[in-house]
């Protein structure tokens, strides 16, 4: 029997599913979308909050479908989506706070970027035209802001669309492959812009096939595979959680065969592949390998010229999840 004088026991700690965030602005609940016989999304649940979230998945995984469902461009067949507490499909006021940069290359070619931004401002009743200039400046389009978009490259079209999205001053910014076609300098500039927007407290959802760029700008990652949620969280946390997935480490050392033979005798190493000075070590215990490797090299008098993980990236995570 419990003592009535004692305070009640504290509630158990809340373990938040990594697919969800506490301060969600966008929530997808049990969302299914299909096109005819093809299931594009299947009972997918996740949420997005302030900051940059990367949306990853192979082609046809359902990333674009999820983004279009979030922005109300397509209806969901089951489940529901809310943005800032509203249904994007039923409440058009949502569009005051939500902007999308679609993957399609299509832009109204007869217009200039400045005219497109001004059009978006007019549709939203924005009288202050300085925001148009700010948006063009943010994506480095001021020098070409009065050129018709007909002759623009893919990267310039993407940046024009980003500018048009920024004019809305959106709370939620959904970017479908926004770095497509951008040159390296513009990529860095856009990545920096998205980071800043996230740091300002906006919800920025970015999909991309260039995974190292997503790693560099998104603190949180949602992985969608075959229309289902495959993983969620920080990319390293996801990788660490996959303990049973072998990782590969490249070791480059002269006389590497001796080192390989020694490492093979350890239960930390699952396999070794030697090719000249290159040794590719497979392990499921990366941290222990990190301790063992320098010790073994020192004992054998082998000089390590390079040690680097071959698959510690979202690319490899992706492959494992899809497999």
């Amino acid at each position: 029997m419990t003592d009535p004088t004692l305070p009640p026991p504290p509630p158990p700690p809340v373990v938040l599913d990594p697919a969800f965030v506490a301060d969600a602005t966008v929530t997808a609940t049990e969302v299914s979308v299909w096109f005819g016989q093809k299931v594009a999304l299947s009972e997918l649940s996740c949420s997005f909050g302030p900051g940059v979230t990367g949306l990853l998945g192979p082609n046809g995984a359902g990333k674009t479908t999820l983004m279009r469902a979030i922005t109300g461009l397509i209806p969901v067949n089951q489940g529901h989506v809310t943005v800032d507490g509203r249904s994007p499909r039923n409440d058009r006021e949502v569009y005051r706070r939500v902007a999308l940069v679609p993957e399609d290359e299509a832009v109204p070619g007869g217009l200039t970027p400045r005219q497109l931004c001004a059009y978006v401002a007019d549709l939203h009743g924005i009288a202050d035209r300085s925001i148009v200039e700010w948006a063009l400046h943010a994506v480095d389009m001021v020098p070409v802001a009065d050129r018709k978009m007909d002759g623009f490259s893919k990267g310039m079209r993407q940046r024009s669309k980003v500018a048009a999205a920024l004019v809305k001053n959106p709370l939620v910014l959904v970017l479908d492959e926004p770095l497509n076609g951008a040159d390296p300098v513009q990529r860095l500039r856009l990545i920096d812009l998205f980071r800043r927007l996230g740091a300002e407290g906006r919800t920025v959802i970015v999909s991309s096939h260039v995974l190292y760029e997503v790693e560099s700008m998104a603190e949180r990652v949602i992985v969608v595979v075959r229309g289902r949620l495959a993983a969620a969280g920080g990319h390293r946390a996801i990788r660490d959680a996959m303990d049973d997935v072998p990782r590969q480490v490249l070791v480059r050392a002269p006389d590497g065969r001796r080192l390989a033979a020694t490492l093979l005798g350890s239960d930390v190493v699952a396999g070794v592949d030697v090719d000249g000075d290159d040794i590719v070590i497979s392990t499921t215990r990366a941290k222990e390998l990190a301790m063992l490797l320098p010790r073994a090299a020192r004992d054998l008098g082998v000089h390590l010229t390079e040690v680097r993980p071959l698959d510690d990236s979202l690319e490899s995570l992706f492959r494992e999840l899809v497999r």
Binding site: P108, G109, G110, D122, L123, H124, A127, R129, S130, E133
Partner: peptide
């Protein structure tokens, strides 16, 4: 950076749509 349009007022949305449609949807 040009600042030709730093001030102004929003056109009515209906007029904006008409203008946009004539320019963007009916090119040469």
């Amino acid at each position: 950076m040009t600042a030709t349009a730093t001030s102004g007022r929003a056109r009515p949305a209906l007029l904006a749509i008409v203008g946009y449609t004539l320019r963007a949807c009916l090119p040469g």
